[in-house]
């Protein structure tokens, strides 16, 4: 290997690494607040670039219809709950989040699915539906079982991934997609060209991480989320609604996932089910951080991307074998670090 190839591999590792870092940090924050391992984040990721290409083709993407359907379902769930409790508590949220917002997103998408709409507007419209989907998905899939064991939540997350991947195939078809990105070379370090897209990804990654940090550290909402993460019932006692808190963190996860999806679109050919594998790798990083430790999760994700990049060069056939087999020693290390558990968490 010469220096040039080494440089390429490092750049490649950092590019995908940045995406894995974003995903893993998001998964950690969702897991700490809700105890849910948000497996479907991979689907949310690919919905954005696919939606963008549909919009640019002058059509409204299927995610909009999905959002309206699930929004209606979520509203009915809330309505039924209010009816049973003979209470109108929470009707504003039900109307705004599950009916008004999907309608607005649909209107916006419809309006921007025209040939002469500026790219930036279409980009926003492509993001709107996959982001707005997240709090609705929480309501529909997880809220009724929010206090169940982690295992039940995980099975539900996997089931949701299954359903969304199926929906993705229906909405976007089996063909691959490569979105246009920035092709220019910004500058060179020695002989190694540093791409614009690489700098964009790095910049976006840093901005999002800083944003998340500031949110959690300095805003009331962020603090409420952290309180929920530490003790769900305690948070409820001081007036934080854990369901709403979970929806906020789901929305944040959606924003990060959508941006990651758009950033990775130009780097590789995406398929309707590509998100799952990308998500899994982000996940592997998150596990390295024990699903609770942010800096460790970020480091883990970067290390994983490096390993992937170099094993792709040396033994491309075995790339995924190496990456996933490595998870086992990591998990083992993690579970040893954990205090001995006398109680098993179980299904049911």
């Amino acid at each position: 290997m010469n220096f040039l190839i080494f440089g390429f591999l490092i750049q490649n590792a950092l590019t995908t690494g940045a995406i894995y870092v974003l995903i893993s940090l998001t998964l950690v924050s969702v897991a700490t607040v809700t105890r849910i391992i948000y497996v479907p984040i991979g689907e949310i990721m690919v919905f954005a670039p696919f939606g963008l290409s549909v919009l640019m083709g002058g059509q409204v993407p299927g995610t909009v219809w999905l959002l309206m359907m699930l929004g209606g379902l979520a509203f009915l769930q809330d309505f039924w709950q209010m009816f049973q409790a003979r209470s109108r508590h929470g009707w504003r949220k039900a109307v705004l989040l599950y009916l008004v917002m999907p309608a607005l997103v649909a209107g916006f998408s419809w309006a921007s699915a025209k040939p002469n709409v500026p790219f930036a507007i279409q980009l926003l419209a492509a993001c709107a539906a996959p982001v707005a989907l997240n709090p609705v998905l929480f309501r529909v899939a997880f809220q009724p079982i929010a206090s169940a064991t982690r295992l039940v939540l995980l099975i539900a997350a996997i089931a949701l991934h299954f359903a969304l991947a199926g929906a993705g195939l229906y909405m976007f078809g089996p063909d691959g997609l490569r979105t246009p990105g920035l092709n220019g070379v910004a500058f060179r370090i020695g002989l190694i060209p540093i791409n614009d897209q690489f700098l964009l990804i790095l910049g976006a990654c840093l901005a999002l991480i800083t944003g998340m940090y500031l949110f959690f550290e300095y805003t009331m909402y962020g603090k409420a989320l952290r309180a929920t993460a530490i003790h769900r019932r305690g948070a409820r006692l001081v007036g934080i609604d854990p369901d709403s808190a979970s929806q906020v963190i789901f929305t944040i996860a959606g924003v990060v996932a959508v941006i990651s999806g758009l950033l990775i679109g130009p780097l590789t050919t995406l398929f309707y089910d590509s998100g799952f594998l990308l998500g899994l790798k982000g996940f592997a990083g998150a596990i390295l951080g024990g699903l609770a430790d942010y800096p460790m999760a970020a480091l883990g994700a970067l290390a994983l991307a490096g390993l992937e990049s170099f094993s792709a060069f040396y033994a491309s056939e075995y790339k995924d074998v190496i990456v996933f087999a490595l998870l086992i020693p990591i998990l083992l290390y993690r579970s040893w670090r954990q205090p001995a558990q006398l109680e098993e968490e179980h299904f049911e």
Partner: peptide, 10 residues
């Protein structure tokens, strides 16, 4: 030896 969800991930 892993607990609940770590084992599932394994």
């Amino acid at each position: 030896r892993m607990s609940g969800q770590f084992l599932v991930l394994a």
